[in-house]
Design a protein around this nucleic acid. Structure first.
Lengths: 216, 216
DNA sequence: GCAAAAGTGTTGCCGGTACACCCATGC
DNA sequence: GCATGGGTGTACCGGCAACACTTTTGC
Protein backbone atom coordinates (compact mmCIF):
# COMPACT_ATOMS: atom_id res chain seq x y z
CA UNK A 1 0.00 0.00 0.00
CA UNK A 2 2.50 2.64 1.08
CA UNK A 3 5.66 3.17 -0.80
CA UNK A 4 8.78 1.91 0.93
CA UNK A 5 11.14 4.52 -0.37
CA UNK A 6 11.04 6.51 2.86
CA UNK A 7 13.07 4.70 5.45
CA UNK A 8 12.11 6.90 8.39
CA UNK A 9 9.01 8.79 9.33
CA UNK A 10 8.79 12.42 8.32
CA UNK A 11 7.30 15.04 10.59
CA UNK A 12 4.67 17.49 9.44
CA UNK A 13 2.16 19.85 10.97
CA UNK A 14 -1.50 20.36 10.15
CA UNK A 15 -3.56 23.34 11.29
CA UNK A 16 -7.24 23.59 12.09
CA UNK A 17 -7.88 27.30 11.74
CA UNK A 18 -11.25 28.43 13.05
CA UNK A 19 -13.08 31.64 12.44
CA UNK A 20 -16.67 32.78 12.67
CA UNK A 21 -18.23 34.31 9.56
CA UNK A 22 -21.91 35.30 9.53
CA UNK A 23 -22.51 33.48 12.82
CA UNK A 24 -21.16 30.24 11.35
CA UNK A 25 -18.11 28.40 12.60
CA UNK A 26 -15.72 27.83 9.70
CA UNK A 27 -12.33 26.30 9.09
CA UNK A 28 -9.76 26.93 6.43
CA UNK A 29 -9.36 24.21 3.79
CA UNK A 30 -6.97 23.92 0.87
CA UNK A 31 -7.23 21.83 -2.30
CA UNK A 32 -5.55 18.45 -2.30
CA UNK A 33 -4.72 16.87 -5.63
CA UNK A 34 -2.25 14.05 -5.40
CA UNK A 35 -2.89 11.40 -8.04
CA UNK A 36 -3.41 8.57 -7.77
CA UNK A 37 -4.44 9.01 -4.14
CA UNK A 38 -6.50 12.17 -3.89
CA UNK A 39 -8.47 13.79 -6.72
CA UNK A 40 -10.01 17.21 -6.22
CA UNK A 41 -10.31 16.87 -2.49
CA UNK A 42 -9.78 19.29 0.34
CA UNK A 43 -7.65 19.07 3.42
CA UNK A 44 -6.11 21.04 6.23
CA UNK A 45 -3.29 23.46 5.53
CA UNK A 46 0.01 22.10 6.70
CA UNK A 47 3.37 20.89 5.60
CA UNK A 48 6.70 19.53 6.65
CA UNK A 49 8.68 20.80 9.57
CA UNK A 50 11.95 22.27 8.40
CA UNK A 51 15.10 21.03 10.12
CA UNK A 52 15.73 24.32 11.90
CA UNK A 53 12.24 25.20 13.11
CA UNK A 54 10.01 23.98 15.89
CA UNK A 55 6.57 22.58 15.22
CA UNK A 56 5.09 25.94 16.23
CA UNK A 57 7.36 27.78 13.83
CA UNK A 58 6.23 25.46 11.08
CA UNK A 59 2.57 26.15 11.80
CA UNK A 60 3.11 29.90 11.72
CA UNK A 61 5.02 29.62 8.48
CA UNK A 62 2.44 27.47 6.71
CA UNK A 63 -0.46 29.62 7.86
CA UNK A 64 1.33 32.74 6.70
CA UNK A 65 1.86 31.15 3.33
CA UNK A 66 -1.80 30.32 2.90
CA UNK A 67 -3.43 33.42 4.36
CA UNK A 68 -0.83 36.17 4.35
CA UNK A 69 -1.56 36.56 8.07
CA UNK A 70 0.54 36.37 11.19
CA UNK A 71 -1.53 34.33 13.59
CA UNK A 72 -1.03 35.27 17.19
CA UNK A 73 -2.29 32.33 19.18
CA UNK A 74 -2.06 28.63 18.45
CA UNK A 75 -2.38 25.61 20.66
CA UNK A 76 -1.11 22.09 20.15
CA UNK A 77 -3.93 19.61 19.66
CA UNK A 78 -2.47 16.14 19.27
CA UNK A 79 -0.06 14.08 17.22
CA UNK A 80 -1.35 11.62 14.67
CA UNK A 81 0.83 8.66 13.82
CA UNK A 82 -1.32 5.99 12.19
CA UNK A 83 0.92 4.09 9.85
CA UNK A 84 -1.14 4.55 6.70
CA UNK A 85 -2.52 8.00 7.35
CA UNK A 86 -0.57 9.29 4.33
CA UNK A 87 -0.65 6.89 1.38
CA UNK A 88 2.59 8.28 0.00
CA UNK A 89 4.70 7.23 2.95
CA UNK A 90 5.25 7.49 6.63
CA UNK A 91 4.26 10.94 7.84
CA UNK A 92 3.58 11.74 11.47
CA UNK A 93 1.64 14.95 11.93
CA UNK A 94 1.48 17.31 14.87
CA UNK A 95 -1.90 19.03 14.69
CA UNK A 96 -2.53 22.56 15.95
CA UNK A 97 -5.59 24.67 16.54
CA UNK A 98 -5.71 28.38 15.78
CA UNK A 99 -8.48 30.97 15.79
CA UNK A 100 -8.94 34.20 13.86
CA UNK A 101 -11.34 37.07 14.28
CA UNK A 102 -13.84 37.69 11.53
CA UNK A 103 -11.98 40.88 10.71
CA UNK A 104 -8.68 39.04 10.25
CA UNK A 105 -10.33 36.27 8.26
CA UNK A 106 -12.00 38.64 5.80
CA UNK A 107 -8.94 40.79 5.30
CA UNK A 108 -6.63 37.82 4.79
CA UNK A 109 -5.52 37.19 1.25
CA UNK A 110 -6.13 33.50 0.68
CA UNK A 111 -3.74 31.78 -1.70
CA UNK A 112 -3.65 28.52 -3.59
CA UNK A 113 -7.40 28.07 -3.54
CA UNK A 114 -7.80 28.14 0.22
CA UNK A 115 -11.40 28.64 1.33
CA UNK A 116 -13.43 28.98 4.52
CA UNK A 117 -15.85 26.07 4.97
CA UNK A 118 -18.68 25.68 7.45
CA UNK A 119 -17.84 22.95 9.95
CA UNK A 120 -21.43 21.78 9.75
CA UNK A 121 -21.07 20.84 6.08
CA UNK A 122 -17.58 19.45 5.72
CA UNK A 123 -16.85 17.11 2.82
CA UNK A 124 -14.78 13.99 3.20
CA UNK A 125 -11.27 15.32 3.61
CA UNK A 126 -7.93 13.96 2.46
CA UNK A 127 -5.72 11.87 4.77
CA UNK A 128 -7.11 11.53 8.31
CA UNK A 129 -8.12 15.18 8.36
CA UNK A 130 -11.74 14.56 9.28
CA UNK A 131 -10.53 12.86 12.42
CA UNK A 132 -8.25 15.78 13.19
CA UNK A 133 -11.03 18.31 12.70
CA UNK A 134 -13.40 16.32 14.91
CA UNK A 135 -10.84 16.23 17.67
CA UNK A 136 -10.15 19.94 17.24
CA UNK A 137 -13.85 20.70 17.54
CA UNK A 138 -14.23 18.58 20.66
CA UNK A 139 -11.18 20.23 22.15
CA UNK A 140 -12.39 23.73 21.26
CA UNK A 141 -15.78 23.11 22.85
CA UNK A 142 -14.31 21.54 25.95
CA UNK A 143 -11.79 24.30 26.60
CA UNK A 144 -13.61 27.33 25.30
CA UNK A 145 -14.11 28.79 28.77
CA UNK A 146 -10.53 28.22 29.87
CA UNK A 147 -8.37 29.24 26.93
CA UNK A 148 -7.60 32.23 24.79
CA UNK A 149 -9.51 30.82 21.83
CA UNK A 150 -12.37 33.25 22.42
CA UNK A 151 -9.97 36.18 22.55
CA UNK A 152 -8.53 35.15 19.20
CA UNK A 153 -11.98 34.92 17.67
CA UNK A 154 -12.96 38.44 18.72
CA UNK A 155 -11.69 41.85 17.71
CA UNK A 156 -9.91 43.87 20.39
CA UNK A 157 -13.13 45.69 21.30
CA UNK A 158 -16.46 43.91 21.23
CA UNK A 159 -19.95 44.02 22.63
CA UNK A 160 -21.42 41.57 25.09
CA UNK A 161 -23.72 40.35 22.36
CA UNK A 162 -20.72 39.56 20.18
CA UNK A 163 -18.85 37.55 22.78
CA UNK A 164 -21.99 35.65 23.71
CA UNK A 165 -22.55 34.89 20.05
CA UNK A 166 -19.08 33.33 19.84
CA UNK A 167 -19.88 30.95 22.67
CA UNK A 168 -23.28 30.12 21.24
CA UNK A 169 -21.94 29.39 17.76
CA UNK A 170 -19.15 27.18 19.05
CA UNK A 171 -21.25 25.28 21.55
CA UNK A 172 -24.15 25.07 19.14
CA UNK A 173 -26.74 26.19 21.68
CA UNK A 174 -28.46 29.42 22.52
CA UNK A 175 -27.69 30.69 26.00
CA UNK A 176 -29.54 33.07 28.27
CA UNK A 177 -28.41 36.67 28.00
CA UNK A 178 -28.61 37.50 31.71
CA UNK A 179 -26.95 34.29 32.85
CA UNK A 180 -24.18 34.68 30.33
CA UNK A 181 -23.41 38.20 31.49
CA UNK A 182 -23.48 37.24 35.14
CA UNK A 183 -21.01 34.47 34.41
CA UNK A 184 -18.47 36.49 32.44
CA UNK A 185 -18.64 39.36 34.92
CA UNK A 186 -18.01 36.96 37.80
CA UNK A 187 -14.99 35.60 35.93
CA UNK A 188 -13.61 39.14 35.99
CA UNK A 189 -12.02 38.87 32.55
CA UNK A 190 -13.64 41.88 30.86
CA UNK A 191 -13.20 45.59 31.23
CA UNK A 192 -15.44 48.26 29.82
CA UNK A 193 -13.73 50.52 27.29
CA UNK A 194 -14.83 53.95 26.09
CA UNK A 195 -17.10 54.16 23.08
CA UNK A 196 -20.26 52.48 21.95
CA UNK A 197 -21.19 50.40 18.98
CA UNK A 198 -24.22 51.34 16.91
CA UNK A 199 -25.80 48.82 14.61
CA UNK A 200 -29.00 50.06 13.07
CA UNK A 201 -31.66 52.21 14.68
CA UNK A 202 -31.29 50.84 18.19
CA UNK A 203 -29.79 51.57 21.53
CA UNK A 204 -25.96 51.52 21.19
CA UNK A 205 -24.03 48.71 22.89
CA UNK A 206 -21.21 49.16 25.38
CA UNK A 207 -17.76 48.02 24.25
CA UNK A 208 -15.52 45.70 26.25
CA UNK A 209 -12.05 44.21 25.96
CA UNK A 210 -10.23 41.45 27.80
CA UNK A 211 -8.28 42.30 30.91
CA UNK A 212 -4.60 41.59 30.33
CA UNK A 213 -3.87 37.91 30.78
CA UNK A 214 -6.68 36.83 33.03
CA UNK A 215 -7.85 33.80 31.08
CA UNK A 216 -5.15 31.18 30.79
CA UNK B 1 25.79 23.46 19.28
CA UNK B 2 23.95 20.59 17.67
CA UNK B 3 25.59 18.39 15.16
CA UNK B 4 24.47 18.92 11.61
CA UNK B 5 24.84 15.33 10.43
CA UNK B 6 21.12 14.66 10.71
CA UNK B 7 19.36 16.35 7.86
CA UNK B 8 15.81 15.72 9.02
CA UNK B 9 14.17 15.47 12.38
CA UNK B 10 13.82 12.04 13.93
CA UNK B 11 10.71 11.03 15.86
CA UNK B 12 10.88 9.46 19.27
CA UNK B 13 8.57 8.79 22.19
CA UNK B 14 9.09 9.40 25.89
CA UNK B 15 6.94 7.92 28.64
CA UNK B 16 6.04 9.29 32.03
CA UNK B 17 5.04 6.17 33.94
CA UNK B 18 3.38 6.82 37.27
CA UNK B 19 2.78 4.51 40.13
CA UNK B 20 2.11 4.88 43.85
CA UNK B 21 4.46 3.12 46.26
CA UNK B 22 4.07 3.60 50.02
CA UNK B 23 1.62 6.45 49.49
CA UNK B 24 4.15 8.34 47.37
CA UNK B 25 3.68 9.21 43.71
CA UNK B 26 6.64 7.90 41.72
CA UNK B 27 7.80 7.80 38.13
CA UNK B 28 10.12 5.45 36.32
CA UNK B 29 13.55 6.84 35.41
CA UNK B 30 16.41 5.28 33.52
CA UNK B 31 20.12 6.18 33.53
CA UNK B 32 21.36 8.54 30.85
CA UNK B 33 25.04 8.56 30.01
CA UNK B 34 25.89 10.19 26.75
CA UNK B 35 29.27 11.89 26.85
CA UNK B 36 30.01 14.63 26.36
CA UNK B 37 26.45 15.81 26.93
CA UNK B 38 25.03 13.86 29.88
CA UNK B 39 27.07 12.28 32.65
CA UNK B 40 25.38 9.98 35.16
CA UNK B 41 22.00 11.59 34.79
CA UNK B 42 18.52 10.20 34.68
CA UNK B 43 15.75 10.59 32.16
CA UNK B 44 12.45 9.22 30.99
CA UNK B 45 12.29 5.86 29.26
CA UNK B 46 11.73 6.22 25.55
CA UNK B 47 13.24 5.72 22.16
CA UNK B 48 12.80 6.04 18.46
CA UNK B 49 9.65 5.18 16.59
CA UNK B 50 10.28 2.33 14.19
CA UNK B 51 9.16 2.88 10.59
CA UNK B 52 6.36 0.34 10.84
CA UNK B 53 4.85 1.20 14.21
CA UNK B 54 2.63 3.97 15.51
CA UNK B 55 3.70 6.21 18.36
CA UNK B 56 1.55 4.13 20.72
CA UNK B 57 3.19 0.92 19.54
CA UNK B 58 6.55 2.49 20.21
CA UNK B 59 5.57 3.41 23.76
CA UNK B 60 4.33 -0.09 24.51
CA UNK B 61 7.50 -1.58 23.12
CA UNK B 62 9.88 0.66 25.05
CA UNK B 63 7.98 0.20 28.31
CA UNK B 64 8.00 -3.55 27.86
CA UNK B 65 11.74 -3.43 27.31
CA UNK B 66 12.38 -1.53 30.52
CA UNK B 67 9.90 -3.16 32.86
CA UNK B 68 8.98 -6.51 31.36
CA UNK B 69 5.34 -5.40 31.65
CA UNK B 70 2.54 -4.97 29.17
CA UNK B 71 0.97 -1.67 30.09
CA UNK B 72 -2.74 -1.53 29.41
CA UNK B 73 -3.59 2.14 29.32
CA UNK B 74 -1.60 5.05 27.96
CA UNK B 75 -2.59 8.53 26.94
CA UNK B 76 -0.86 10.99 24.66
CA UNK B 77 0.42 14.00 26.55
CA UNK B 78 2.04 16.39 24.10
CA UNK B 79 4.73 16.65 21.47
CA UNK B 80 7.98 18.45 22.23
CA UNK B 81 9.87 19.96 19.35
CA UNK B 82 12.30 22.55 20.70
CA UNK B 83 15.22 22.65 18.31
CA UNK B 84 17.95 21.95 20.84
CA UNK B 85 16.08 19.64 23.16
CA UNK B 86 18.47 16.84 22.20
CA UNK B 87 22.09 18.03 21.89
CA UNK B 88 22.95 15.19 19.53
CA UNK B 89 20.59 16.25 16.79
CA UNK B 90 17.07 17.07 15.84
CA UNK B 91 14.70 14.80 17.73
CA UNK B 92 11.02 15.54 18.12
CA UNK B 93 9.41 13.58 20.91
CA UNK B 94 5.81 12.54 21.43
CA UNK B 95 5.31 12.18 25.18
CA UNK B 96 2.87 9.73 26.74
CA UNK B 97 1.53 9.17 30.24
CA UNK B 98 0.92 5.73 31.69
CA UNK B 99 -0.04 4.46 35.14
CA UNK B 100 0.63 1.18 36.94
CA UNK B 101 -0.80 -0.31 40.09
CA UNK B 102 1.53 -0.82 43.03
CA UNK B 103 1.23 -4.55 42.46
CA UNK B 104 2.34 -4.28 38.83
CA UNK B 105 5.15 -1.89 39.73
CA UNK B 106 6.59 -4.13 42.43
CA UNK B 107 6.36 -7.29 40.36
CA UNK B 108 7.90 -5.71 37.30
CA UNK B 109 11.45 -6.71 36.55
CA UNK B 110 13.26 -3.45 35.95
CA UNK B 111 16.14 -3.58 33.50
CA UNK B 112 19.05 -1.36 32.60
CA UNK B 113 19.09 0.39 35.96
CA UNK B 114 15.54 1.70 35.80
CA UNK B 115 14.25 2.94 39.17
CA UNK B 116 11.11 4.40 40.71
CA UNK B 117 11.68 7.97 41.93
CA UNK B 118 9.43 10.14 44.07
CA UNK B 119 8.07 13.02 42.01
CA UNK B 120 8.59 15.29 45.00
CA UNK B 121 12.36 14.82 44.88
CA UNK B 122 13.24 14.63 41.22
CA UNK B 123 16.79 15.47 40.18
CA UNK B 124 17.60 17.55 37.15
CA UNK B 125 16.83 15.25 34.27
CA UNK B 126 18.44 14.86 30.86
CA UNK B 127 17.06 16.61 27.78
CA UNK B 128 13.84 18.55 28.47
CA UNK B 129 12.48 15.76 30.59
CA UNK B 130 11.76 17.91 33.64
CA UNK B 131 9.46 19.97 31.48
CA UNK B 132 7.73 16.84 30.22
CA UNK B 133 7.27 15.49 33.73
CA UNK B 134 5.84 18.78 34.95
CA UNK B 135 3.34 18.81 32.15
CA UNK B 136 2.43 15.18 32.79
CA UNK B 137 1.82 15.97 36.45
CA UNK B 138 -0.36 18.94 35.63
CA UNK B 139 -2.28 16.86 33.15
CA UNK B 140 -2.70 13.96 35.56
CA UNK B 141 -4.03 16.23 38.29
CA UNK B 142 -6.37 18.07 35.95
CA UNK B 143 -7.89 14.94 34.43
CA UNK B 144 -7.76 12.54 37.33
CA UNK B 145 -11.53 12.56 37.78
CA UNK B 146 -12.29 12.11 34.09
CA UNK B 147 -9.86 9.48 32.85
CA UNK B 148 -8.88 5.88 33.47
CA UNK B 149 -5.66 6.89 35.19
CA UNK B 150 -7.11 5.99 38.58
CA UNK B 151 -8.20 2.59 37.34
CA UNK B 152 -4.68 1.91 36.09
CA UNK B 153 -3.22 2.88 39.46
CA UNK B 154 -5.44 0.51 41.42
CA UNK B 155 -5.64 -3.28 41.54
CA UNK B 156 -8.82 -4.87 40.20
CA UNK B 157 -10.36 -4.99 43.70
CA UNK B 158 -9.73 -2.23 46.20
CA UNK B 159 -11.15 -0.59 49.29
CA UNK B 160 -12.66 2.87 49.44
CA UNK B 161 -9.73 3.94 51.56
CA UNK B 162 -7.34 2.85 48.81
CA UNK B 163 -9.06 4.73 46.01
CA UNK B 164 -9.35 7.84 48.16
CA UNK B 165 -5.65 7.55 48.95
CA UNK B 166 -4.86 7.56 45.23
CA UNK B 167 -6.70 10.84 44.76
CA UNK B 168 -5.14 12.35 47.86
CA UNK B 169 -1.59 11.40 46.88
CA UNK B 170 -1.98 12.71 43.34
CA UNK B 171 -3.70 15.93 44.29
CA UNK B 172 -1.44 16.43 47.29
CA UNK B 173 -4.27 17.21 49.69
CA UNK B 174 -6.22 15.30 52.26
CA UNK B 175 -9.91 14.98 51.48
CA UNK B 176 -12.90 14.28 53.66
CA UNK B 177 -13.86 10.62 53.87
CA UNK B 178 -17.63 11.14 53.81
CA UNK B 179 -17.57 13.71 51.02
CA UNK B 180 -15.28 11.55 48.94
CA UNK B 181 -17.56 8.53 49.26
CA UNK B 182 -20.65 10.56 48.45
CA UNK B 183 -18.95 11.83 45.32
CA UNK B 184 -17.75 8.51 43.94
CA UNK B 185 -21.06 6.83 44.72
CA UNK B 186 -22.94 9.60 42.90
CA UNK B 187 -20.66 9.09 39.90
CA UNK B 188 -21.89 5.50 39.81
CA UNK B 189 -18.55 4.07 38.74
CA UNK B 190 -18.03 1.51 41.50
CA UNK B 191 -19.63 -1.79 42.32
CA UNK B 192 -19.26 -3.74 45.51
CA UNK B 193 -17.63 -7.13 45.05
CA UNK B 194 -17.69 -10.09 47.44
CA UNK B 195 -14.98 -10.37 50.06
CA UNK B 196 -13.41 -8.07 52.59
CA UNK B 197 -9.92 -6.83 53.18
CA UNK B 198 -8.34 -7.12 56.60
CA UNK B 199 -5.37 -5.04 57.57
CA UNK B 200 -4.37 -5.40 61.19
CA UNK B 201 -6.68 -5.74 64.14
CA UNK B 202 -9.48 -3.60 62.76
CA UNK B 203 -12.83 -3.79 61.15
CA UNK B 204 -12.47 -5.31 57.67
CA UNK B 205 -13.09 -3.07 54.64
CA UNK B 206 -15.51 -3.76 51.81
CA UNK B 207 -14.01 -4.40 48.39
CA UNK B 208 -15.03 -2.58 45.22
CA UNK B 209 -14.18 -2.63 41.54
CA UNK B 210 -14.94 -0.31 38.64
CA UNK B 211 -18.09 -0.81 36.65
CA UNK B 212 -17.24 -1.73 33.09
CA UNK B 213 -16.39 1.36 31.07
CA UNK B 214 -18.18 4.06 33.04
CA UNK B 215 -15.36 6.58 33.33
CA UNK B 216 -14.18 7.76 29.96
C1' DG C 1 -12.26 -3.02 77.22
C1' DC C 2 -9.28 -0.68 74.22
C1' DA C 3 -6.87 0.60 70.15
C1' DA C 4 -7.47 1.31 65.26
C1' DA C 5 -9.59 1.72 60.99
C1' DA C 6 -14.48 1.29 58.72
C1' DG C 7 -18.65 3.16 57.99
C1' DT C 8 -22.49 6.69 57.89
C1' DG C 9 -26.01 12.19 57.28
C1' DT C 10 -27.00 16.91 57.77
C1' DT C 11 -26.21 21.77 56.94
C1' DG C 12 -24.63 25.96 54.52
C1' DC C 13 -22.75 27.98 50.42
C1' DC C 14 -22.08 28.77 45.67
C1' DG C 15 -22.50 28.30 40.74
C1' DG C 16 -25.84 27.28 37.12
C1' DT C 17 -30.33 27.77 35.09
C1' DA C 18 -35.02 29.48 34.27
C1' DC C 19 -37.52 33.45 33.59
C1' DA C 20 -39.80 39.09 32.11
C1' DC C 21 -39.53 43.74 31.88
C1' DC C 22 -37.70 48.57 31.01
C1' DC C 23 -34.20 51.51 28.21
C1' DA C 24 -32.11 54.05 24.37
C1' DT C 25 -32.01 54.99 19.68
C1' DG C 26 -33.41 56.13 14.46
C1' DC C 27 -36.93 56.53 11.77
C1' DG D 1 -44.76 56.35 18.82
C1' DC D 2 -42.95 52.22 17.32
C1' DA D 3 -39.72 48.86 16.11
C1' DT D 4 -35.37 46.92 17.43
C1' DG D 5 -31.76 45.32 20.01
C1' DG D 6 -29.41 46.68 24.84
C1' DG D 7 -29.48 46.12 29.52
C1' DT D 8 -30.87 44.41 34.29
C1' DG D 9 -32.56 40.92 39.20
C1' DT D 10 -34.79 37.03 41.56
C1' DA D 11 -35.93 32.20 42.74
C1' DC D 12 -34.99 27.30 42.55
C1' DC D 13 -31.74 23.37 42.29
C1' DG D 14 -27.69 20.47 42.64
C1' DG D 15 -22.84 19.83 43.63
C1' DC D 16 -19.25 20.77 47.06
C1' DA D 17 -17.23 21.48 51.72
C1' DA D 18 -17.44 21.41 56.82
C1' DC D 19 -18.40 18.65 60.55
C1' DA D 20 -18.69 13.77 64.84
C1' DC D 21 -20.14 9.60 66.21
C1' DT D 22 -21.00 4.44 66.01
C1' DT D 23 -19.28 -0.24 64.36
C1' DT D 24 -16.23 -4.06 63.85
C1' DT D 25 -12.29 -6.42 64.64
C1' DG D 26 -7.71 -8.50 67.20
C1' DC D 27 -5.47 -8.40 71.08
Amino acid sequence: MRKPELKFAIIATDSVIFTILNEKLKILLVPVNIPPYFHDMQGLPGGLIAPDETAEDSVFRHIRNKTGLDIGYIEQLSTFSAINRDPRGRVVSVAYTACLSEEQATKSILKDGAVWVDVRSLPKLAYDHNEIVNKALENLRAKIWHTKFVQSLLPSKFTLHEIQSVFDVILGVGSDKRNFRTKVFNLDILKKVPGKKMKGAHRPAELYSFKASKVL
